[in-house]
Design a protein around this nucleic acid. Structure first.
Lengths: 156, 156
DNA sequence: TATTGTTATACTCTATAACTATA
DNA sequence: TATAGTTATAGAGTATAACAATA
């Protein structure tokens, strides 16, 4: 039985219309738009059994070959412990490798494998297509403007 | 010991620069911007021990008094089972109430309590202030344009 | 003593199947 | 049988403290 059945016991409304206050909040619109765009990307990446964060990691590694795990964590805006299982996955699938750092034997340099590079070039096209499809209601000029405004926000 | 120490054992790069491929993706920019805006909102709402989703729920209930839990789930874009603990919290804190629906005794109508209405009017101001602060690098005209573009995306 | 990577843990969010009570 | 709400559970994502090896 439900945990509450107090009060006057009455009321029933068919309603479920659109919101009022939330509609003026950029944060709310950002969340909804981000969810929609990500749903598209998640669906496409699932064909390769990858999550968006893993794709981002591969792209960051390619852009910064030899970076350390702490650097990767910072670039992904996640905490260092979260990098471990993610990198383990990428290593298991032979997409990336950890290489001992000579001067500082505590750390690793992270690199893409040849297979990782090949897959990443495919993923880049997939991500670009997904991005375009999920924002198909915008013109190219609007996409450019949106990108500019979003960068202004997250770059502080 | 680490689970991999194969390969040539060498390499060390101070690097950790900015990304290249990701910078052109709207999905990536959306995610970063949304995280930043939400961090601000989460911090402000924590003073009232509330999460953004709970604030959204209160706003939707006010806009649709008497709606059913299934309607609320749809409006929040979450699954019905997730509504239960959230609504329990709101009822425990006497911000919202479930009222038995007379014609269909399986369902409830959801309403704000008087205290819920009072708190919500406070929260609206907090959310508006947070939104403004988190997007302080934009002009009012740019905020309006951004909101327009985001709605075009998530409304399909 | 401080730092890199790691382990363990926990808490939230999300998603699914199955149960109850009504219809 | 179908539906509204609920329960239970499992999987991600996120955050923190603490440990080992190295500096």
């Amino acid at each position: 039985m439900p945990r509450s059945a107090r009060i006057t016991d009455d009321a029933c409304v068919p309603a479920a219309s659109e919101e009022g206050v939330l509609e003026d909040l950029i944060g709310y619109a950002l969340r909804r738009a981000q969810l929609k765009v990500f749903q598209n990307l998640i669906a496409r990446l699932s064909a390769h059994d990858l999550r968006p964060a893993q794709f981002s990691a591969l792209a960051i590694i390619e852009q910064n070959p030899g970076l350390m795990q702490a650097d990767l964590a910072r670039a992904l805006a996640i905490d260092p412990p979260q990098v471990v299982p993610m990198l383990n996955k990428l290593e298991e699938r032979a997409l990336a490798v950890r290489v001992r750092c000579k001067p500082d034997k505590r750390s690793y340099g992270i690199f893409l494998s040849k297979g990782g590079e090949t897959l990443l070039s495919e993923l880049k096209q997939i991500a670009a297509d997904s991005d375009h499809e999920a924002t198909s209601s915008l013109s190219d000029g609007e996409r450019t403007e949106l990108l500019r405004l979003l960068k202004r926000i997250y770059r502080d």
